[in-house]
């Protein structure tokens, strides 16, 4: 690991000032330290925000406000989340391990970097690590890579489970800007598509600090998170789905579906959701929905299995939830 200065922030203003001056924010450290050990990230200054008191979950406008340093364990175990936002509890519990969830925070989870092996291997080319260097993944071994939202410069996935559930729940990221004003950003405006600058992953500016995430009032309907992976536990998703479905008189009144494991950011497709709305559930309908979802897929060799997997997962989930 390269040497760095460590500072513990006493308040959010100190964290913002340090971040504006180039310091990298340290929350749980489970992603940042991993990458610093490999020198994929090599900050000269680190500012620790773990003791800023951003670790509370409070009620807000009929929904909930989750502080940025609430741990993944505490969030998953919170009674309000378990009762009103079960898809979020389920997504968190499907991620990482008990040990990691005790350290991993809400803000850190949103900003965790990709698990593309070429991003991790400083001996290979990666536009996300070193802009303009090229991408060894394209034409290389592909498995945990994206088929939606990719560009000719990058096929890296966003690996988070939590963010997929939050995307389905229309969560808003609360950001404290350089001057101390707070703003709320929807997840689709928060995550950038890679384009020709895969190294710039979000619309955050230097000095911005995530202070929390807001969940709107709970939605009616059933909620589910399903995750397919290479082993039964302690592995990232090959494909995952966060689904909220409300039925009315045997028809799908609303289907909100977000996907992990296929997109360069947590994926949602309004066109597919519209297609399902008002329809009677059937195998043909679900197959059509999968076709719509995959209409812009860019499937590099090695990732063909994801088309089948996502189609089957979508059908199985909808079948079960529309019974």
């Amino acid at each position: 690991m390269r040497p760095f200065d460590y500072q513990r922030a006493e308040d959010t203003a100190a964290a913002r000032t340090a971040s504006r001056a180039g310091a990298t924010i340290l929350a749980g450290g489970t992603n940042l330290l991993d990458l610093m050990k490999l020198e994929v990230m090599a900050p000269e200054r680190v500012v620790d925000i773990s003791r800023l008191g951003l670790n509370r979950i409070t009620e807000k406008d009929g929904g909930l406000h989750i502080g940025a340093t609430v741990t993944n364990s505490d969030l998953a175990a919170d009674m309000r989340i378990r009762r009103d936002y079960p898809v979020l509890s389920r997504a968190l519990l499907a991620g990482a391990s008990g040990q990691l969830r005790n350290k991993a925070t809400t803000g850190g989870n949103l900003l965790q970097r990709t698990r593309c092996p070429y991003f991790y291997d400083t001996g290979t080319a990666c536009n996300k690590r070193t802009p303009g260097e090229g991408c060894a993944a394209i034409g290389g071994e592909l498995r945990n890579h994206a088929i939606l939202g990719t560009s000719e410069h990058c096929v890296a996935l966003h690996p988070s489970d939590m963010a997929v559930a939050m995307r389905a729940l229309d969560a808003m990221v609360e950001v404290e800007g350089e001057d101390g004003t707070r703003r709320e950003v929807a997840l689709d405006d928060f995550y950038r598509l890679p384009g020709d600058r895969p190294d710039i992953e979000t619309t955050l500016a230097p000095g911005d600090l995530i202070t929390g995430v807001t969940l709107p009032a709970p939605l009616e309907g059933r909620q589910q998170y399903r995750k397919v992976r290479d082993r039964a536990s302690y592995a990232f998703a090959l494909v995952s789905i966060a689904a909220i479905v409300r039925m009315e008189d045997g028809r799908i009144a609303d289907a909100t579906l977000a996907f992990g494991g296929i997109g360069t950011r947590p994926w949602r497709d309004p066109e597919m959701e519209t297609l399902l709305k008002g329809e009677r559930p059937s195998a043909a309908l679900f197959a059509k929905a999968a076709d719509v979802l995959m209409r812009h897929a860019a499937v590099h060799p090695g990732l063909e299995f994801k088309l089948t997997l996502v189609t089957r997962l979508l059908s199985a989930t909808l079948e079960e939830m529309t019974e």
Binding site: R8, D48, G98, Q99, L100
Partner: peptide, 14 residues
């Protein structure tokens, strides 16, 4: 609470 001590800075546990 259980954590992975390898992914944690000692100074952060003051």
């Amino acid at each position: 609470r259980r954590i992975n001590a390898c992914l944690s800075l000692a100074v952060a546990h003051d």
